[in-house]
């Protein structure tokens, strides 16, 4: 069985700075949702940017559905089903919500499914339907986060990378976003979600498998159930929450 995502001995970072050291990650077909937890500065965003192609790896190999994509340009990765939703959202502030969503379906892969995907994102984020004609830059923080996730979904992804999807949001919006993600994983059979978070509780609540990243290295990994009872996790992560 081929893995959806396979990261092998990956080293990565920015120009002179190596942040990620010898990262190995495997997402196979039995897993629906994977969490990546770790403190600020652990390298979670660097890892997601490298998987999505925004950063070139320094060493190692990334494969997707059995094909090596280590140096595939970022925009082509969207076309094979990898969608990255960055923590900074990176929406188009002076465009209407509907235009942003349509641009999310820019690739060949997504073009034909645009109407279907639009129905999907409007059903899970009804707020976006109400704000259809509003300029994206005038949306609230929570709505912009919804729009960023929705734009990712418009590309018909098989692997959705969500980078800290709830940073800076009010607690009620946080639980809304997480219940939407859980619902999404249930309705979209083909979809795998990989979520980077500092909020350990939400990850343990919504993911099947968890990686713990610290100082650019994978410190631990395991099924949610196994890690939940791990003493080190309890002490350094769950205890804090």
């Amino acid at each position: 069985m081929t893995n959806v995502l396979l990261v092998e001995h990956l080293f990565g970072g920015y120009d002179e700075v190596t942040i990620l050291r010898d990262i190995n990650i495997k997402i196979d077909n039995n897993i629906k949702s994977v969490g990546l937890i770790g403190p600020n500065g652990a390298g979670k965003t660097t890892l997601f940017k490298t998987i999505s192609g925004l950063l070139k790896p320094k060493k190692g190999k990334i494969s997707y559905n059995g094909t090596e994509i280590t140096y595939l340009p970022a925009h082509k990765r969207v076309d094979i089903g990898i969608a990255y939703v960055p923590a900074e959202k990176e929406i188009f502030p002076r465009m209407s919500v509907i235009d942003v969503l349509e641009l999310g379906a820019y690739t060949k892969r997504a073009r034909d499914k645009m109407a279907e995907n639009l129905d999907l994102v409007f059903s899970i984020f009804p707020r976006l339907r109400e704000r259809k004609w509003q300029k994206a830059g005038t949306l609230s923080g929570g709505e912009q986060q919804m729009l960023a996730i929705a734009r990712g979904l418009m590309s018909s992804p098989e692997l959705l990378l969500l980078d800290e999807p709830t940073t800076g949001l009010a607690p009620i919006i946080v639980s809304q976003i997480y219940s939407t993600i859980k619902k999404l994983v249930q309705i979209e059979e083909q979809l795998k979600v990989f979520i980077a978070e500092q909020r350990t509780d939400e990850i343990f609540d919504s993911c099947d498998f968890v990686y713990v990243l610290e100082n650019g290295k994978i410190l631990m990994m395991g099924t949610t159930d196994d890690l939940r009872t791990d003493e080190r996790i309890k002490k350094s992560y769950l205890g804090l929450m």
Binding site: A83, I91, G104
Partner: peptide
Amino acid sequence: VGAIISGI
């Protein structure tokens, strides 16, 4: 960046 991750 937003454009690249939209596949443009």
